[in-house]
Design a protein around this nucleic acid. Structure first.
Lengths: 239, 239
DNA sequence: TCTATTCTCGTACGACGTACGAGAATAGAG
DNA sequence: CTCTATTCTCGTACGTCGTACGAGAATAGA
């Protein structure tokens, strides 16, 4: 029997067993590691080498454990990924003061999410398939809901807005990262540009041709993000 | 030597070799399968059982080939996934008439993307890590750029808007699918609701408590999507 | 000291992506 | 026709993954 309590049908999906406090099983051999340390090691690994580097064996090695020991702390790899998401969500300031101007507060929140995702580039991908209901995630959700209180919207609407905002930020950061990666590997970018130029030259893609012919702009990604974010948030009416 | 021409450093990332027309290598044994058929089989598999069911062995079996035969048609699994993305993008009407009202046209485009993603629920996840530069994808991009012509924005701005719109739709569909899945497995949903109620009852999450206490609304996902889409698109100024 | 409990982790299994290379099929050259 | 170069097919095999299993080590209460 593992610490998470086995027996759930599909693994990694029972919030009770994962997040609820463990009580005190003060008996038997003392744990040699900790969920915290394991999660932190997994996060460090993902930060350094990407999500695909996060394997049970490598995380275990990083922490000085045998691979199978991890299963005493996370019943699953999926569970470990949820722990990672909640872990980094702890970096988000969840009790910062609110201005009362919900649009401004929402923009601040989005900027913090973006900063977090830039610090942990694997996070957008991890979030796209998964969501955490851990304490840090819920604390930040609570914060966002509080920011939305002045809108007077009902709960479901507020939850939707937060989900959409998060998805928007994740999408933008993914785009940012792609652009930055292209800038860092000029060979591939050049090959791609050459290919697109070929396509555009066939006459069937005039708009594409024109878009590619335009000189590269010198706007910072930050500014672009802010512009899109402002548009999105300002467009949110309280109808 | 495979049909794609080997030798590229990192696999699955050289658009030239993937999408450019193969010329005519009329010599040697005739191909027993086709890229089209293989891609279609992979898409069918993903539609039926999700992206994780798409393995080289299973796709090959589906098409009556040995696993290794696929590598004559796609040098990589990653390449096969790109082929899948472009394949389903072919379902998007890329030469539908435009009204000249770019906001309306953009909304139509987004609705079509949503329909596509609902038909192929694996698509948002596939797009989040990947992007295709295949003919169908580029045709639809061309269409979107044409729709944005009346804005007078420069090429980079139009490309960004399209990327953001796609990310927005993908985010929303992911959310929709999650909600629908929760509705289909009431056990898990109930367990989650119970857990959240527990958390909300601790007094530290008043906003969450209130949001969860609200009665479930009866708005269709479609209507929610339209509302968010309108807000986003109407918020897009041409500054 | 004994026993129940808890954690550790070596071994092993099945599934994955795919390198390798032997064989089958085809087209042009002689 | 034969010969050869080329192309496609796919069985075998390797390394890596997640993780089931279970034997052993450590601990707490009886």
């Amino acid at each position: 029997m593992t610490r998470d309590g086995g027996g759930s049908a599909t693994p990694g999906t029972d919030p009770q067993q994962l997040w609820l406090s463990p009580g005190q099983p003060r008996r038997g051999r003392r744990p040699g590691f900790s969920r915290e340390a394991i999660t932190a090691a997994a996060v460090a690994l993902a930060d350094a080498e990407g999500l695909e580097a996060v394997t049970m064996r490598r995380v275990a090695a990083q922490v000085g454990a045998g691979a199978m020991s991890l299963y005493s702390y996370a019943s699953d790899k999926e569970t470990l990924l949820e722990l990672m998401v909640d872990h980094v969500s702890g970096e988000l300031p969840a009790s910062a003061p609110l201005t009362g101007d919900w649009r401004a507060d929402l923009k601040t929140i989005a900027h913090r999410q973006r900063d977090l995702m830039l610090r942990h580039p694997w996070l957008p991908a991890a979030l796209s398939t998964r969501r955490s209901l851990g304490p840090n995630t819920l604390a930040f959700l609570e914060h966002a809901l509080a920011a939305l209180r002045p809108t007077g919207l009902d709960g479901a609407a507020k939850l939707e807005i937060f989900a959409q905002l998060t998805a928007f930020v994740a999408g933008h950061v993914t785009y940012e990262i792609t652009q930055a990666a292209a800038a860092r590997s000029p060979d591939r970018a050049a090959a791609e540009a050459r290919y697109l130029a070929t396509v555009a030259a066939d006459g069937h893609h005039p708009e594409l041709a024109e878009a590619l012919a335009a000189p590269a702009r010198t706007v910072t990604p930050e500014a672009t993000f802010t512009r899109f974010l402002n548009r999105l948030v300002d467009g949110l009416a309280t109808d």
